[in-house]
Structure formats: structure tokens, C-alpha cells
Computed example of a mutant assay.
Amino acid sequence: MESMEPHGRPLRALVVEDSEDDTLLVADELTDSGFSVSCTRVETAGQMREALQHQEWDIVIADHRMPRFSGRAALEVLKDSGLDIPFILVSGTAEEHTGVEMMRAGASDFIMKHSLRRLGPAVDREIHEAESRRQRRLAEERERAAEEQRHEFYRRTILAATGGKLVIAEPHEIERIAGPCIRSWQITELDELRHVRDEIQELAAESGMDESNVFAFVGCAVEAMANAHKHAGGGTVSLHSVRDGLMLVVSDEGPGIETLALPDVALTKGYSTAASLGMGYKVMIEFADKLYLSTGSEGTTVAIEKGLRERETARETALGKLTGW
């Protein structure tokens, strides 16, 4: 591995080349194009991997054919590294179709050695495009981080405002919380909703659930299924056994609920994202012992938990301790 230090616009070039003379030609051409080139030559896959691991590079320039390596293999080494560095193939013998194949495989450009004057403008263009991609990634990462912070803020706010009854969760968390599946259904038509509702009511009663709890549980189920039908044309419904109760999980592949709408969904009685959605999440929260909600661009999952017996509220527990009743 050999390095040549420079003198104007900084450029860190990793040159995959077995010929020192050809490497000097590349460095001279880049210098003539206005770059201050810090150039390192490698000629094996191991040397290239080591260079990629231990230094940052602006460009990779590779010869097409070498005794112990090749441009195609060098491109694979770069792709395996996961680094977004422009890759330019330089060759004195390869045919045009080889360059086309390499560019389809991920190379940024293909330049013949007798046309090295193209190298400087090509490097300049690819560096600018790489920087644009980097800035886009940074902007996307910042937006994702901001969205995650907003989501966490709303999750904590909603959990506190609903007395711990509405939990904003991820689908895998709901899957973990739900107990053994008793029965599942696919719903696409309104008539199917009525049939599933009746089966849920029958199964809840058979489980030993109090009549008033059955009424509340089925009411929540109808609302969740109606939302799935309204927004996604249907979905999957499953009934699960949880400790001292039942859990109904309704999943769809609709557009989901926007993060900014979550507080209104959770805290505004009768709120809905479209007309005629029924009684809304606020009332569902009141009827359920606990409600789990996962929503995003890939769909919405609602899990309704209800005990077999009416559970004592935290307020009632506190009053009991205070009065000694």
C-alpha cells in the first residue's frame, strides 16, 4: 500500500491499481483538474478492506484488470463495506459493454485510460452527488429522530392522561402481551362484522365474563372492527386469553393515524379521523380495562383488554384505604 501526499482542493483517493506509473498518471490528472490529491494505492482485496476500515475516502478509482485483483472484485469489496463512496472504473483494455455492466452493478462511471481528461470532471460530479446523498441521509435521520421524540412524548402524555389505560405500543409488543389465541377471523364485509360480534359475545360469556363486562367488551370490539372496515376495507380479528380476562386484537393495513392526531384520538370524546366512525377511542378507553394502540403507515393494531370481573380502579382502592371500607 503506497501513499502520495499532495498541494489545492482536498481529495482523498483510494486507487486500486497494480501499476505505480498508472497511479501517478491518475494523481497527475486529478491535480491538473484542481484537486489536492492524497492518493493511496492498493492492489489486493485485503489491502483495500484495510484501507476502507482505517481511513475515510472521497473516491475509489479502480483498474479493470490486475494480476491479483480486478475492478469487479474491488466494487464488491466496496459494496460489502456498506460505505457510500463513488467508484470509478478505469481501464485501458475493457470493452464498452464491460463498463455498462459495471455501472449496472453499482459503479459510478467508466473511463478509458486514453480518455483520462474525463476523470477530473467525473470525480467532481460524483463527489457532489455523494455529498448530496449524505445531506439527504442526515436530514432523514434528523426527521426520524424528531418523529421518534414526538411519538415518545405523545406516548407518555397519553399514558398519563388516560390513567395508564391507553398504551401506545409496537406490533411486536402487542403480540407478546396477547395470550393464547382462542379464535381468529378475517373481516371484509359489514355482515361479517355482525357475525364476528355475535361469536365474540358468545365466547366472552362462555369464558365466565360478567354480563356487564361482556357488553362493554363487545362494544369496544364493534368499534375497533368498524374502524378497520372503514379505513382499510377490513382486517384480522383475534380473541386471546389473558390473565383473569380476554384480549381482542384488531389489525388492518390502512393508512394509520398520524402522530399529531394521537392526542385528539385518545382524549377527545367522539373524535374521529372521518365522519361516522362511531363512539371513538375516548369511549373505548372508558369501557376497556386497558387499550393498546399501534399505528403507522403500514396499518393499525388495536388490542382491547377486559377482565372477567369488573376491576377496582385506583381511585376506589385509594378511597378504600382512606375510609377503611
Score class of each variant (00 low, 15 high):
residue 100 V to F: 01
residue 154 Y to S: 02
residue 80 D to R: 03
residue 114 H to I: 06
residue 116 L to E: 07
residue 135 Q to P: 01
residue 126 E to R: 13
residue 121 P to H: 11
residue 178 A to T: 08
residue 150 R to A: 11
residue 135 Q to Y: 14
residue 147 E to C: 06
residue 74 A to K: 10
residue 146 A to W: 11
residue 145 A to K: 14
residue 158 I to C: 01
residue 89 L to W: 01
residue 128 H to E: 15
residue 115 S to H: 14
residue 76 E to N: 08
residue 73 A to K: 09
residue 98 T to Y: 02
residue 121 P to R: 14
residue 138 L to W: 12
residue 122 A to R: 12
residue 152 E to C: 05
residue 163 G to K: 13
residue 102 M to L: 13
residue 164 G to D: 02
residue 148 E to D: 10
residue 80 D to P: 03
residue 155 R to V: 00
residue 153 F to S: 09
residue 95 E to P: 01
residue 92 G to Q: 04
residue 103 M to C: 14
residue 93 T to A: 10
residue 140 E to D: 15
residue 155 R to N: 02
residue 155 R to A: 13
residue 112 M to A: 05
residue 154 Y to T: 00
residue 141 E to I: 09
residue 171 P to S: 08
residue 170 E to V: 03
residue 179 G to K: 12
residue 88 I to A: 07
residue 74 A to T: 06
residue 147 E to S: 12
residue 154 Y to N: 03
residue 129 E to Y: 14
residue 157 T to K: 15
residue 119 L to P: 10
residue 73 A to Q: 12
residue 135 Q to A: 15
residue 82 G to H: 03
residue 101 E to V: 08
residue 82 G to F: 03
residue 110 F to L: 07
residue 147 E to Y: 14
residue 86 P to E: 09
residue 117 R to S: 12
residue 175 E to R: 14
residue 135 Q to D: 15
residue 126 E to D: 10
residue 150 R to K: 13
residue 121 P to V: 10
residue 106 G to V: 02
residue 168 I to D: 00
residue 120 G to S: 07
residue 162 T to L: 04
residue 85 I to K: 02
residue 77 V to L: 03
residue 143 E to F: 14
residue 142 R to E: 15
residue 155 R to M: 04
residue 106 G to R: 01
residue 148 E to T: 02
residue 178 A to D: 05
residue 155 R to Y: 08
residue 131 E to C: 12
residue 110 F to V: 02
residue 86 P to S: 02
residue 136 R to T: 11
residue 76 E to L: 07
residue 131 E to L: 15
residue 95 E to M: 06
residue 150 R to D: 04
residue 123 V to I: 06
residue 111 I to P: 06
residue 89 L to A: 10
residue 143 E to W: 15
residue 75 L to Q: 10
residue 119 L to E: 05
residue 178 A to I: 05
residue 178 A to M: 12
residue 96 E to F: 01
residue 163 G to F: 09
residue 86 P to T: 05
residue 96 E to Q: 04
residue 170 E to A: 10
residue 108 S to P: 01
residue 80 D to C: 05
residue 71 G to R: 08
residue 81 S to H: 03
residue 165 K to R: 15
residue 109 D to I: 05
residue 73 A to H: 10
residue 158 I to R: 13
residue 103 M to P: 00
residue 91 S to P: 00
residue 122 A to H: 10
residue 171 P to I: 08
residue 165 K to H: 10
residue 79 K to F: 01
residue 82 G to K: 02
residue 96 E to C: 00
residue 119 L to S: 11
residue 136 R to W: 13
